[in-house]
Design a protein around this nucleic acid. Structure first.
Lengths: 106, 106
DNA sequence: ATAACATTTGGCTATTTTACCAAATATACA
DNA sequence: TGTATATTTGGTAAAATAGCCAAATGTTAT
């Protein structure tokens, strides 16, 4: 694997890593239905405001969401909506995995 | 977010996390063209054999690949091939991100 | 100006992840 | 049986991540 390839895979992995956290993935999926302000997330997540803010910063730095401030609130939305197209496949993996485990228990 | 939702997002995030490493993502992409044995990966990755083996174990535990031993070698293949369908979208994120950064530098 | 609200930032600790080395295991072959 | 080859496992140190608290920032309303 040469340097160029390495850089490319590091960049791709960074995007995936940003989504690879339960809270961040949930937030990204919420945004499929349209923008949300930080306070709306905070209402539904049991975590410190600062934690939520940092998770959103990770998604922003990865280029997955963008934000804008309107009044006192900051609104977030998906920047590249296709980002969640593959969720059905992730679900297939989980189902397949569940079957494998069930089979092993027989 | 209730307990059930939490469990679901933890499971989904676990699959993403398995792919969210440059080496593992690269290996998964190699498998799109068909199975590979560990030694073939080792030829192309500059890392210890044990490191490569552990990365493959992460992919296996996540249900992304499966393996079988034939003779002295262990072959790995994608268990759920759709898993890489979204790479074009990841690339869009990276491009969009590159544009944003370029714009900020102007 | 001051107070109240929404969000981000800095600092800290606990946990997780990564990668290496050495040793163990499994298989084929002399 | 002993040896070489392929891969995994155990242990460990360094680096990255997550989440909390307290403090800082920016905005609106009084």
């Amino acid at each position: 694997m040469n340097e160029e390839t390495k850089r490319i895979y590091e960049a791709k992995a960074k995007v995936l890593k940003a989504l690879a956290h339960p809270t961040r993935l949930w937030m990204a999926e919420q945004l499929v239905d349209g923008e949300r302000c930080v306070c709306e997330f905070a209402d539904q997540i049991d975590a410190d405001f600062s934690t939520i803010s940092k998770h959103l910063a990770v998604l922003r730095q990865a280029g997955i969401v963008e934000d804008d401030k309107r009044g006192k609130q900051v609104y977030y939305r998906l920047k590249v909506p296709c980002i969640l197209n593959f969720m059905s496949c992730i679900e297939s993996v989980i189902e397949s995995q569940a079957k494998t485990h069930a089979a092993l228990l027989q």
